[in-house]
């Protein structure tokens, strides 16, 4: 079987900084795949490249057989996505946000309203459907993003930290819905999370990324065996280290270095 997501030797540079560094992995159709790694590892950047929002600096990305960089329009018909950060229209109501999405994704007309109702009820926002999104709490906005992401049923679903900031009840509901979607419609699920328990419970296969490079991949069992650990969390810590990824620290170090070389140049 052909992989539905295929990433070959992909890199992404922002100026001099390499955010994604020669990453390769495959995801098979119908699989639930977790993409794990510390803050700033390059997860969201990889997802943005797979979803046509960023152009890779090098390498090849394929989605359902389409070259993501060259066949953008065809690629966009394949997937749905829940972004890590906000992507709602704050000035519209919850219902209007859902409706707009349904039209953009060409959801079959007769299904639009029933589906919006079902999903808004699922995330407990049906009563608030006529409220402007600006007035929502952070968690409510997140729930609306999830509901919107599930409105159409794509072949591949990207979920970038979908459960970020959600309460335990909603997290459970969401995962149950997604697992059902995966089973009923063979939707491929590609998600990231910092809750390792979640990944262990849901994912069939996992890839771990650190500093823009894949450091391990396999099933939970395989990862535990490779590292000689008892659970996914220990395996993760062993693979990515226990050091905290503080971006500001890195950049202060960078600045200090730049300052030093500047002083050197002056002295010369």
């Amino acid at each position: 079987m052909e992989p539905i997501i295929s990433v070959k030797n992909v890199s992404k540079k922002f100026g001099d900084f390499t955010a994604v560094d020669g990453v390769s992995f495959d995801v098979m159709p119908g699989e639930i795949f977790a993409f794990l790694g510390p803050n700033g590892a390059g997860k969201s950047t990889t997802i943005k490249m797979l979803t046509t929002l960023l152009k890779p600096t090098g390498g090849e990305l394929r989605l359902a057989g389409h070259d993501v960089t060259k066949e953008q329009d065809a690629t966009r018909k394949v997937f749905g996505i829940v972004f890590q950060d906000a992507s709602l229209d704050d000035e519209l109501t919850a219902f209007e946000n859902m409706q707009l999405h349904a039209v953009l994704y060409g959801v079959y007309r007769k299904e639009v309203n029933p589906r919006i109702e079902e999903l808004l009820k699922l995330v407990d926002l049906w009563e608030r459907r006529k409220a402007i999104v600006k007035t929502f709490s952070g968690g409510m906005k997140r729930r609306l993003e999830i509901a919107r992401g599930l409105l159409h049923h794509p072949k591949v679903m990207f979920l970038d930290e979908p459960t970020l900031g959600l309460d335990a009840q909603t997290r459970n509901l969401m995962w149950n819905y997604i697992k059902e979607l995966n089973q009923k419609e063979q939707t491929t699920i590609f998600f990231t999370t910092h809750y390792l328990g979640e990944a262990e419970a849901v994912a069939q296969r996992i890839a771990m990324i650190d500093h823009g490079k894949i450091v391990a991949s396999g099933t939970t069992e395989e990862l535990k065996q490779q590292t000689g650990t008892a659970n996914l969390e220990d395996a993760y810590l062993k693979l990515t280290g226990t050091q905290v990824r503080d971006e500001t620290l890195d950049s202060t170090a960078g600045n200090r270095e730049r300052f030093r070389s500047m002083m050197k140049n002056k002295q010369r």
């Binding site: 966009r76 992507s87 709602l88 060409g106």
Partner: peptide, 14 residues
Amino acid sequence: QFGFLKETLVAPVS
């Protein structure tokens, strides 16, 4: 800045 542009840019319409 508010992020909504992403929603339209990944949609399957030209």
